[in-house]
Design a protein around this nucleic acid. Sequence first.
DNA 1: TTATTAAATTAACGGTGTTAAGTTAACGAC
DNA 2: GTCGTTAACTTAACACCGTTAATTTAATAA
Lengths: 212, 212
Amino acid sequence: MPPKVKTDAEKQLIRTVIMDAARELFIHQGVDAVTMRAVANKIGYSATSIYLYFSDKEQLLRAVVDADVLKLAQALQSTLKISDPLERFLQFGKHYVQFALANPNHYRMMFMTQHPPCDPALSSIEQHNPEQDAYAQLIGVVNNACEAGIFKDELTDPVLIAQTIWAAMHGLCALQINLAEDAWIDWRPMETRIEMMVNMCLHGLLKAAPHE
Amino acid sequence: MPPKVKTDAEKQLIRTVIMDAARELFIHQGVDAVTMRAVANKIGYSATSIYLYFSDKEQLLRAVVDADVLKLAQALQSTLKISDPLERFLQFGKHYVQFALANPNHYRMMFMTQHPPCDPALSSIEQHNPEQDAYAQLIGVVNNACEAGIFKDELTDPVLIAQTIWAAMHGLCALQINLAEDAWIDWRPMETRIEMMVNMCLHGLLKAAPHE
DNA sequence: TTATTAAATTAACGGTGTTAAGTTAACGAC
DNA sequence: GTCGTTAACTTAACACCGTTAATTTAATAA
């Protein structure tokens, strides 16, 4: 059965086949509930064959997450073309939240679960490349908005601004993803909470209050 | 060896002994890395004995988390006595963040990991009791601040305000806990990010800009 | 003194990530 | 063409996990 000798391209293809199967299962069942045997079974391999392409489950997960971070960057890419810096800033945030809520399990894997700290050198994503690195995109967007002079004068560090609004939006998404079903909390509708958070950020950051 | 017939009080004591051992391990190694055998070993029991006191690992975890949520409420309790509504609001938030950063693994268990949705009826915490329920405390604090008229006039729903600032503070804590070590991000010092977030929230919510 | 029974233990099951040992079929050398 | 070599893959097996079933122990109640 083994048709022997695979080119590097074929090997890479199998890697992505494995990753796609794993992602599909991760998304629907959560990372912990997915077994290597299940991933293998989904693509007609034996469990141990996966270890020919990924050294262990953690590395497989990491590869999937890497690809998804790239996908996030691509989802945000379109907003970078918007010419008005404030509008670009707004749409960037909006798309970020949309991505998180539309792909909660991707999002959970990326930002809400504990992995060993990521070494940029080992990542498949080129750090600081604005087509691949969503964090670099964020810094860029905030930087532009800063240069356009829309933020209050005392806010001088774009990185600090970026990290703050990231935290705010992340909090919104993370609580929704983890606790939306929790009967303890009488959650307001998510749209309302998004609007409230955006308004709070804008009033807190912008020189002039947002129009209307 | 089994000295037979334990009073209910003795049984409850053993429950807390188990919970304390589990918490200790959870905190230092993370929930997933801790085995029932390890918990049992720590208190000189066999693994299966734990099942005489907790039906499974999930319920043991839930009991630990419940106790920790109570501890959070107690940590916040002191701030409720502050007479000035704004100062109370500020200190409440400050203590919340302090608790999260001082007890990252507690915090992770409480708000950052996925459990089956919590049924208030099964919890050991009395919902809406301001001595036990930290969320009820938050609602109370925001309500008072609202009645004192410190928020912008258009902000009329205290619950929505509460959920928004919770999300903001949670985002701050959650990113710090999960990604502080990540070499990808050039994090600003945590104190600076806290200050920035608080200022953003205050400028975004308060009628008058915070003094100075 | 003895039967009962609560409290705990050991044995065992099915399932997990992972490694070691085997199997199969395509290739290069003669 | 055939024959080792070796890449690709599978099966077997290991150590460990959460959990359940069967068993032991010792204090009590008759």
